[in-house]
């Protein structure tokens, strides 16, 4: 009995460790620079939007979810538009690439 409890505890510990590690791994910040090919935002009151970036290095299309007010505002008044090159940091959360930094590379 004692032995099976100990085994169960070890299994539970290992499972928890794997789960927590995989959560850390999925929350890793990924950096990319790419050009916006598409912006999807639902109206002026939208609290979220997606932007598709074409990665400069890999040429792959990456869909980024944007939730921060500053960037959403820039989509709404078109300070950021399709064709702009963006420096982006994102984390994969629940299967979505959630933006942590989304800035135009160009300046004045």
């Amino acid at each position: 009995m004692k032995k099976s409890v100990a085994v169960l505890l070890v299994v539970a510990f290992v499972a928890l460790s794997v789960l927590s590690l995989s959560r850390v791994a999925s929350a890793e910040e990924i950096k990319m620079v790419g050009v916006i090919t598409k912006i999807d935002i639902a109206g002026k009151d939208a609290k979220t939007a997606t932007a598709t970036l074409k990665d400069n290095k890999t040429e792959k299309l990456v869909v980024i979810t944007i939730n921060d007010d500053l960037t959403l505002d820039k989509f709404k008044d078109h300070r950021i538009v399709e064709g702009d090159e963006i420096r982006c940091k994102y984390e994969v959360i629940d299967g979505k690439n959630v933006s942590k930094l989304f800035r135009k590379t160009a300046g004045c």
Partner: peptide, 15 residues
Amino acid sequence: KNCMVCHEAAGGGVL
């Protein structure tokens, strides 16, 4: 926002 339209991107990029 009105001010930052110009002032945040001065010097060749955001910040």
